[in-house]
Design a binder for these strands. Structure first.
Length: 909
RNA sequence: GGUCGCAUAGCUCAGCUGGUUAGAGCGCACGGUUCACAUCCGUGAGGUCGUAGGUUCAAGUCCUACUGUGACCACCA
């Protein structure tokens, strides 16, 4: 009926057309009206917007696959599922990319000017941006592409401005002179979160600062007779900006000189010695140089102590004009060397020690960050943090794995104000204007661009040159993307969202802030569940990154093995929030799990299609009375798999869900059921048996394909659409919109017990054949003793499987023991005995050894079990069913032991 | 310095509320070309569950300490 399928799964030909088909049919679109009308519960995931210039890496591959798994699963469950895509304008990152680009043309952003530069970035973004959204399609993401958003588009910019104004009016946004993290390469302020500390092997320089005036007794002196004290610093060049030296108020060594002055070397300045309890008398010499303009702690102290600040660095980290002429315009690291050299020459270099400390680096360009005193805009975070903290404490937002709750809580508990201004051009311009009319100086913060000063009416307004931190738009994402501040249908239908899946690296940057914004502007949490993924690492445990060049390109994997193989591999490989390890040097090895499984699924489907000619099969209900053991068994196992997959998805145990589907498909359906089915599909059997087989096979495939669809969307739909129709079923056009299977309706304990017994028997026969090197093609006879009822029924129903699956020629039940017969022997669970006469193949002595070994093993296990049962505390306290199980175990062991020893005795005679 | 995580087979990891003889994939060894699949099938070897204590009738699972390792936060200049 349909074209023959290739023996190997070829994803390339299938995925593209299938994805287009889904999109054309509108399966990705979420219907706000339906959700509002209550026809379907909404289920919403917003994508963590990737940088607009980003290209897909494995981190996205993991992240977005998990989001899509959840979305597809919920969609099949009948929810109105919305997976909302979009990108982030990524201020610094994007600006850096374009700056590098124009640098190849020999230009800087200043050459172009602000307007032209921003224009250039837009061109770049329009031309090459958003490729990642295409790439997400390639891995099968079922996003509602009609709702794609961009943080810098007009609607979202309006949300940003609304938020800025509201917070300003509430007094939660302020402008001030503070020490901030400054990137001398990006030439902008960074938030505390954007300055990433890295352990660095540096030096601790001990510098002698001469005291001015007379030398007190007991202090060391220089050759010229002046007393000196020693301060330690890791950044000697900053001494040019020192405005004080501090000691601890109770440090007896320095009591006498507090209040006196130091003649700051290399300069002609005199600076005071102050007492401040911030100083740790134990560290170094207990005396600290104070540089308020270039160190956060010194800055704090300078405010307490009323010490002036002196900025000695330019924005690009060169010495400025406020230092002695010899150092002006010098790079900070050159100046460091020079200062040290000059101290040494003046006999003021006490000593240099190795010193390991952490140094903050720019999270975008990795340049060493320079603390810098400057005027910036801040958000007062404490009031925003309170409801966000309460939400995690009262469990209304849940983190998975839940250990992240503590991390989240402690960040909020120690929340610090957020520096939101950036000295960039690419981003949301700060909606603040300053009136430059003489004597006015009014600051205007407005939703609409003002044309005249609200105070003096003058038109000489200047807008603040800075833009806002990228995250100042991202933190609004769950509602700005739905149309806020307007009261839209989408907002009504889809806010709050449900699950946020993201990397833990942006817990503070993004997740916590979204929760704060949700409460502040929507009065409600933006989502109820946060799933934090692991990190994708290489075989050496290093995080995959572009700069290390150890990344894996997901698209290369898609091209080689298909999106399903990629998806299955990342899902199966990631435990609950654990890191995922992949080998960039061996893609075949890394993704073979997914590739092989996809191929297995393909071939099992192919098998069914080749063996069922009809375009329609009966429903299982219609052939109920003709179902055979194997049929009832596989349907029962499918029911169990359905329950497991569903349960694991509910608790975000993606890997377990994947494993459950895998195990059912390969270990039960393919390895056993299909083998058992062959005679009934290919041989000459009764019509009823064949019909039951076909109905069951199609039902089983139908079910497991649905269970696998969220993880492997392409192959499951490709096969599902080709499956014969099930009579009476109003089949959907695609598995994507088919319903999620229900469980708890086809469990069959008896069938499972019988099949288990049969499978064990076949397994034992295979084991013994292999153990005794019986040629694979040689049919053998087996003897069975003490066949219990369960096994008996299984043999009656599916005895022919022994021939097919274990090359058993004849089965003799309760055959009389032939005295002296040598053979392979095994005792099955439930007490049945298996004997394979092997007189022509093995020698007796060998067999006796084996039996003896087996007997020893059994005796050991029996002893352990008996000891347990003899323990009065066990029998007194353990639950009845546990004791019962132990008893059965012991009885079992005892029986087996007795049989074994009599067998052994028989062999000896 | 503070907080949190991890330590189970050669490798990467499962093991959900303590309870049958601790599992999977890859790798390895042996054996397999009958028409779903060699991206396959069968069999096997390999684990004192990091160390030492403790709780319990029962511990890979709970508690404590230690060792190793990783992450995050705060940083002492």
């Amino acid at each position: 009926m349909s074209e023959p399928l290739s023996p190997q799964y070829e994803p390339g030909a299938i995925e593209g057309p299938l994805f287009r088909d889904w999109e054309e049919r509108g399966y990705f679109r979420a219907d706000a009206a339906r959700a509002i009308a209550g026809d379907a519960d909404p289920y919403v995931i917003v994508i963590p917007p990737p940088n607009v210039t980003a290209v897909l890496h494995m981190g996205h591959g993991l992240n977005n696959t998990l989001q899509d798994v959840l979305t597809r699963w919920r969609r099949m469950q009948g929810r109105e599922a919305l997976y909302l895509p979009g990108t982030d304008h990524a201020g610094i990152a994007t600006q850096n990319v374009v700056e590098r680009l124009i640098a190849t043309e020999g230009k800087t952003r200043d050459d172009l000017g602000r307007e032209a530069f921003v224009e250039r970035v837009w061109t770049f973004v329009d031309e090459t941006g958003s490729t990642i959204l295409q790439q997400l399609r390639a891995i099968g993401c079922s996003c509602d592409w009609t709702r794609t958003r961009f943080t810098l588009e007009p609607d979202l910019s309006r949300a940003v401005r609304e938020v800025f104004v509201r917070l300003y009016e509430k007094g939660l946004i302020y402008r001030g002179n503070y020490i901030i993290n400054w990137c001398p390469r990006c030439l902008t302020a960074l938030s505390d979160e954007e300055a990433e500390p890295a352990e660095t092997n540096g030096k601790l320089y001990h510098l002698r600062y001469p005291l001015s005036g007379h030398a007190p007794a007991g202090m060391p002196t220089l050759p010229d007779g002046r007393a000196y004290l020693v301060v330690a610093t890791t950044r000697p060049e900053t001494m040019l900006g020192d405005t004080a030296v501090a000691v601890h108020p109770e440090d007896e060594r320095y009591q006498a000189i507090v209040g006196r002055q130091v003649a700051l070397p290399l300069t002609d300045r005199l600076i005071p010695i102050v007492a401040d309890s911030f100083v740790d008398p134990e560290f170094g010499t207990g005396a600290v140089k104070i540089t308020p303009a270039h160190d956060p702690n010194d800055f704090e102290m300078s405010r307490r102590q009323n010490i002036p600040s002196l900025n000695v660095l330019t924005p690009d980290a060169h010495m400025n004009d406020d230092v002695p002429a010899a150092y002006r315009r010098m790079d900070r690291f050159d100046a460091r060397k020079r200062v040290v050299k000059d101290f040494d020459a003046a006999g003021l270099l006490d000593r240099i020690e190795d010193h390991t400390h952490s140094v903050p680096h720019c999270y975008r360009c990795d340049t060493i960050v320079e603390p810098r005193l400057s005027e910036q805009w801040f958000v007062r975070m404490k009031p925003l943090a309170e409801p966000a903290l309460a939400a995690s404490r009262n469990g209304s937002v849940r983190f998975t794995p839940d250990r992240w709750t503590k991390v989240y809580d402690s960040w909020l508990e120690n929340i610090r104000d957020w520096c939101i201004s950036r000295q960039l051009w690419w981003g949301h311009r700060i909606p603040v204007w300053y009136c430059t009319a003489p004597g006015c100086g009014e600051t205007i913060v407005a939703r609409e661009d003002p044309t005249v000063c609200t105070k003096c009416g003058d038109a000489t307004l200047e807008q603040d040159p800075d833009v806002l931190d990228t995250w100042f738009s991202s933190w609004l994402w769950p509602f700005s993307t739905l149309g806020w501040p307007d009261d839209t249908q989408d907002l009504k239908a889809f806010y709050p969202t449900n699950t946020l899946v993201t990397a833990p690296e942006i817990l503070f940057f993004w997740v916590a802030r979204m929760i704060m914004a949700g409460f502040e502007f929507m009065g409600e949490l933006p989502f109820t569940d946060v799933y934090l993924t692991g990190t994708v690492r290489d075989t050496q445990g290093r995080k995959m990154s572009k700069s290390l060049g150890n990344g894996i390109d997901p698209l290369e994997v898609v091209n080689l093995y298909g999106a399903d193989a990629l998806r299955y591999t990342v899902v199966a490989g990631s435990g609950l929030g654990t890191d995922v390890y992949m080998d960039p040097g061996n893609l075949e090895n890394t993704f073979s799990v997914g590739r092989n499984f996809a191929n297995k699924v393909w071939n099992a489907g192919r098998f069914a299609l080749m063996n069922i000619q009809a375009s329609e099969v009966k429903s299982v209900a219609d052939v109920e009375s003709s179902l055979e053991l194997a049929d009832r068994w596989i349907l029962s196992r499918l029911d169990a798999a359905t329950e497991e997959v569903t349960r694991h998805l509910e608790s975000f145990r993606f890997h377990e869900a994947a494993a459950a589907g895998y195990h059912f498909f390969w270990g039960e359906l393919a390895d056993w059921y299909l083998e058992l089915l062959k005679p009934r599909l290919q041989g000459d059997v009764e019509q009823g048996s064949r019909e039951a087989a076909e109905a069951t096979l199609v039902a089983a495939l139908d079910g497991i394909l649905r269970l696998l669809h969220p993880v492997m969307p392409f192959i499951t739909d490709a096969l599902w659409r080709r499956l014969p129709r099930i009579a009476g079923d109003t089949a959907a056009a695609s598995i994507m919109i088919a319903s999620w299977p229900r469980s708890g309706i086809r469990r069959d304990e008896a069938a499972e017990a019988e099949m288990t017994a049969l499978m064990e028997l076949i397994g034992e026969v295979r084991t013994l054949r292999a153990e005794y090197n019986v040629a694979p093609g040689t049919p053998i006879a087996i003897h069975l003793h003490d066949v219990h009822e369960t096994l008996d029924r299984a043999l009656t129903a599916e005895g022919r499987a022994l021939e097919r699956m274990a090359r058993v020629g004849t089965v003799e039940r309760n055959a009389p023991a032939v005295a002296g017969a040598a053979g392979a022997h095994a005792v099955l669970r439930g007490g049945a005995e298996l004997f394979i006469p092997l007189a022509d193949i093995i020698d007796l002595a060998q067999e006796r050894d084996r039996l003896q070994k087996e007997l020893d093993r059994l005796s050991g296990m029996l002893k352990g079990t008996e000891a347990k049962l003899a323990n009065e505390q066990f029998t007194a306290r353990a639950p009845v069913d546990v004791i019962e199980r132990e008893r059965e175990k012991a009885d079992n062991f005892r029986d087996q032991r007795d049989r074994l020893s009599s067998k052994l005795a028989a062999l000896r005679s």
